[in-house]
């Protein structure tokens, strides 16, 4: 797997192994923040950003700190620690230097701390045996895949708002049904590039 081309990794993260729709990671923000297109895009951009940062931070720590000391089993808890600290740091930096972006991302940035898609991408990078650059590409692909899923689903939900839905299915039930249909459509990408 370590020789997979960057393009294949990118497409793999974006479509074939789409984090939300194929691997069912990060469902919470997917359902919670996809009501409006604007906030969906904001959340996704924040996720892409944090995924890249988290990968850049966790990959060296795993390779140079955990593996040589035979502590690879600590990866989950160490990664959670790193991601949480990183998101806080990013928040502080953004607030100081780019207030408009800080205001645009708003509540979504701290929310990402507990986003399992971010933890998922860092752990899957290690499990797939990617090197540093491949990991970054995979993180970018996964983030873009998250954006794609969020934007698509926000569109679906905005249509659902005006649709005539039976009383008992209104709200979350119809959202889950719609999410499953969108997810089934992503099954069509399985097997692309032999991923």
């Amino acid at each position: 797997m370590s020789n997979t081309s960057f393009f294949a990794i990118l497409i793999g993260g974006l479509l074939v192994n789409n984090f939300v729709l194929s691997q069912f990671l990060g469902i919470c923000p997917f359902l919670g923040v996809s009501k409006k297109l604007n906030s969906a895009v904001g959340m996704s951009v924040a996720v892409i950003f944090v995924m890249l940062m988290a990968t850049a931070a966790t990959h060296p720590i795993y390779t140079y700190l955990l593996v040589p000391n035979d502590l690879a089993y600590l990866q989950t808890i160490v990664f959670i620690l790193i991601i949480a600290a990183l998101v806080q740091l990013v928040e502080i930096v953004l607030r100081r230097f780019i207030p408009p972006l800080y205001n645009a991302l708003g509540i979504y940035l701290p929310l990402i701390t507990t986003n399992c898609a971010v933890l998922g991408v860092t752990i899957l990078n290690i499990d797939s045996g990617y090197n540093f650059v491949q990991s970054l590409v995979n993180a970018l692909g996964a983030g873009l895949g998250f954006l794609l899923a969020m934007v698509m689903f926000a569109g679906v939900r905005e249509r659902l708002e005006s649709a005539e839905i039976p009383e008992s299915l209104k709200g979350l039930p119809i959202t889950l049904v719609a999410a499953s249909v969108v997810s089934v459509s992503f099954l069509g990408f399985q097997g692309l590039f032999g991923l």
Binding site: I61, L65, L66, N69, L71, L74, I77, V78, L81, I82, A85, Q88, L89, I92, V93
Partner: peptide
């Protein structure tokens, strides 16, 4: 393991505090 995790937490905490 305890030292490494504690150390990482401490460093992260210090960085955050300073930042």
């Amino acid at each position: 393991a305890v030292l490494l995790l504690g150390g990482l937490g401490l460093i992260a905490g210090l960085i955050l505090a300073i930042a």
